[in-house]
Write a protein that binds this DNA or RNA. Sequence first.
DNA 1: AAGTGGTCTAGACCACCTC
DNA 2: AGGTGGTCTAGACCACTTG
Lengths: 233, 233
Amino acid sequence: MTVIPRHSWKSVRDVIHGKILDSTFGPGDKLPKDEELAGELGCARATVQRAMRDLAESGVVERRRKGGTHVRSDPVTRATLDIPITRREVEQRGSVYGYQLINLEEADTPYEIAASFGLPSPCRMLRVEAVHMADRRPYIYEDRWISPQTVPEIRDVDLTAESANEWLVRNKPYNRCDLRFYAERAGAYHARLFNTDVNEALFVMERTTWLNDDPITSLKAVTAPGYQLITTT
Amino acid sequence: MTVIPRHSWKSVRDVIHGKILDSTFGPGDKLPKDEELAGELGCARATVQRAMRDLAESGVVERRRKGGTHVRSDPVTRATLDIPITRREVEQRGSVYGYQLINLEEADTPYEIAASFGLPSPCRMLRVEAVHMADRRPYIYEDRWISPQTVPEIRDVDLTAESANEWLVRNKPYNRCDLRFYAERAGAYHARLFNTDVNEALFVMERTTWLNDDPITSLKAVTAPGYQLITTT
DNA sequence: AAGTGGTCTAGACCACCTC
DNA sequence: AGGTGGTCTAGACCACTTG
């Protein structure tokens, strides 16, 4: 009786993944149940579980109780995005970070902002406009709405000194986060801010967050010309 | 002796996360070792492990053997991006998908492409230019380079019928994937293709993949005006 | 060298979902 | 209602990494 070399969950994962890649199991096919696979591979069921969870997380298979494990029929490329605090991002580029509050007011949200929160109608929120700078040049313009009902403490924060970005990330957890990326023409305001052409193409990130279905903040971040969002897996 | 209500790994995670959010443990602080926490919380060490892994994956803490578990000092917002096959994306929008090969040739890669693969100098690759369409209108223009050394089978694929996008995702696994997003002005070519203004801002995705350090493909996908990349967590 | 997280097992029970 | 994946435990051993 030979002890099997070693059944790490990664090797189990790779064996199963291999059978999918070589078409032993095609898109949509049902895989044997964990228990069977554990028997075949000579490892504990928990090890198969661990392997399968990894495959499920990377989008290769789908699992459902009672339904079993199926090979996903529409493969996706899945990647993880890390969006750091803007200050950190600037500093890691080796630049000097700067921050400037442009405007702070309490006002009714436009319809689009209410909509992005999923609210039926506009309501009163705190609006914060600010610029993040890298080496004294504008780097990201942020236009943010904060719900003072969910985040009452925000009124006590000195937003001329600390960016809402930083304070919120450090102090206010969230459950749900919507992200949206697109390109936008600069327009007169941003062209002047970034000292560029009116027709420059700018990369825009929008982020809306909730805590237990209560709106926290909605942010539109317009980046300087040439900005790139990068991921490595 | 009351049986503790139930110690699911999620509740354990939330307890620990709570202690981080209420500053019981601040940024950079070291958390007790798993064994201790398990004792305090009255659960198995494996349960703490599971909870901690989740916190580590979502970027809240960092763990190192022997080093212990620390609260991350620079919080990040972490999101998972799912990029489907373009055909699927179009179909799920409820549109009719179309595909058109524009150009297919073997040529030396420009320096930028070689660079994105991390290669020192240009080399011969297959170049595929194509358009994906939604309801007969251009949706995404793709300019792709494929390494025939890593993917010799590509020569036998009829790229007029099936997009390289689809064939590669279905048939060629990859280890490593770099993604890059930015905005670009349309220019004459894309303006005509998308039937829009020369200065329109277009959202661009670049994706480069490898299998065990061997280059597979590098793709620049220029999207139609108004395109948005969306994530929900 | 030793401390800490990571993995593996065997077994039990739970919870969800399809059949 | 029953089958399948998900979780939990207790204990052992492994592997990384830092003091």
